[in-house]
């Protein structure tokens, strides 16, 4: 088969692919296929054409996948979203633990008072106190479950990191240009809120100031 006939055949295939999937520049892929053709010797066969078609389809698939992954902003996921989610979950464990110990303080005080109560009343109060202690076991269980989620997030983080390493810096550059456009408008297309940068609460404990500090600011 002559080179011109091969190119014509490939061009036809690419046009069909473009109709089917869109978004890929056929000129790029023709270049790829041409380079493959140039590297081959002898006449093309039907099998050879099939191989070329598969190669160009693979190239297109990789390009599309790369663009889609860049759109997902994997660098943001790793540097911002996953660590933030991990911090929030860890803060939940800390908050529930603190609240549980506050409950313990109160309940232990109540239990101490049972010595001054009528025996029948003291027994009822003591039973209620026991129920509270038992119920507070939720903090241990939820804490362990959340810790498992945090571990899973850390594993995802390492996988995304491996993905970033595999695709290199190009994927970050692609994502940056698209994301910078997105940040300027709200999903509806309206301008972003002017106080958007202030809307980050509730704060993690290490980033928060106390009520006393706030009161002091008001003099």
């Amino acid at each position: 088969m002559a080179d011109a006939a091969v190119k014509e055949k490939i061009a036809e295939q690419l046009q069909e692919l473009q109709k089917a999937e869109g978004s890929v520049n056929p000129a790029d892929l023709v270049g790829i296929v041409e380079s493959v053709i140039d590297s081959m010797e002898g006449d093309l066969t039907a099998v050879g054409l099939k191989v070329y078609a598969d190669i160009e389809a693979l190239a297109r698939y990789i390009n599309t996948a790369r663009a889609e992954i860049a759109d997902l902003r994997p660098d943001d996921i790793n540097s911002e979203h996953l660590p933030a989610a991990t911090d929030e979950l860890t803060a939940i464990v800390g908050s529930t633990e603190q609240a549980t110990h506050t409950i313990f303080e109160a309940v232990e005080n109540i239990e101490t008072l049972t010595e001054k109560m009528e025996p029948e009343i003291a027994e009822q109060v003591s039973a209620a106190v026991t129920s509270i202690f038992e119920a507070c076991g939720f903090q241990d269980i939820t804490g362990q479950r959340i810790t498992k989620v945090v571990t899973a997030l850390q594993q995802i983080e390492s996988k995304v990191d491996a993905l970033l390493q595999a695709f290199g810096d190009d994927i970050k550059v692609d994502g940056d240009s698209k994301a910078s456009t997105k940040k300027k408008t709200a999903p509806s297309g309206a301008p972003a809120r002017p106080d958007e940068d202030l809307l980050n609460g509730p704060q993690l404990p290490e980033n928060a100031i106390s009520q006393d500090d706030i009161d002091a600011l008001f003099g």
């Binding site: 110990h101 232990e108 026991t130 202690f133 038992e134 507070c136 076991g137 804490g143």
Partner: peptide, 13 residues
């Protein structure tokens, strides 16, 4: 136990 909450529950019980 590595959870202080659970240590306190068991101690109280």
């Amino acid at each position: 136990d590595d959870y202080k909450t659970m240590l306190r529950i068991i101690r109280n019980l």
